[in-house]
Simulated scan of single mutants.
Amino acid sequence: MNWYLNVLKQYAVFKGRARRKEYWFFILFNLIASVVLTAIDFMTGLLDAELGIGLLSGLYSLAVLVPSLAVTVRRLHDTDRSGWWLLIGLVPLLGAIVLLVFMLLDGTPGDNQHGANPKGVAA
């Protein structure tokens, strides 16, 4: 849970680096929260079947949009890539696969152009 809260505390920090662990724990807790809120929307009748989103889950999605972008950019920085690589996700299917691979790669050991190694281990 601390990984999730740390990302929210740095909600608009697009500089620096983020470890794989930080990124994937944020994604995991984000997914769990979205599923729970969608279930609550469904049970309370707040879910719009045509749009596939409810009031609570929609508000939550808007609230974590900027932190999600920020942690993704920091994760790209950890692999020594520019945050602009995030735009490759706009390419249907292929872009998502490329981003997934980037998110799964280990960060560059030691310092890189985006800052110090978040693992604290220099190679």
Rank of each mutant, 00 (worst) to 15 (best):
R75G: 04
L55M: 15
G110V: 07
V36G: 10
L56W: 13
A12K: 14
A39Q: 15
V36H: 04
K21L: 13
S82K: 08
T38D: 03
F26G: 00
P109R: 14
G58P: 02
L5C: 03
R20M: 07
S68R: 02
L76I: 06
T72F: 05
V101G: 10
W3H: 14
W84L: 05
L56S: 06
T38S: 15
F102T: 03
A70G: 00
W85L: 12
V98P: 06
G16W: 07
R17E: 04
F42R: 14
R20C: 02
L51C: 02
Y11T: 03
F14M: 14
L87I: 03
G45R: 10
D41S: 11
I53P: 04
L100D: 08
Q10S: 14
L76K: 05
N117Q: 09
I88S: 05
V13E: 13
W84Y: 14
L59D: 04
L104D: 07
L55S: 02
N6A: 09
T79N: 12
T108A: 12
L5G: 01
R19Y: 06
G115V: 07
L93E: 05
D41W: 12
T108Y: 06
T79C: 10
A96E: 04
T44M: 15
L93W: 13
A49V: 14
A33F: 10
A70C: 02
G89Y: 06
I88T: 05
L46P: 05
R75A: 01
N6C: 02
G58C: 05
L37D: 07
A18N: 05
L51D: 06
P109M: 01
V36S: 08
L87R: 05
L62K: 03
S57A: 11
A18D: 03
E50V: 09
D111S: 15
A12C: 14
G115W: 09
L56D: 05
R74G: 07
M43P: 02
I27Y: 13
Y23G: 01
V13D: 06
G110A: 11
L104Q: 09
T38K: 13
R19S: 14
W84D: 01
A33V: 12
N117V: 11
W3N: 13
G120I: 07
L105T: 05
G16N: 08
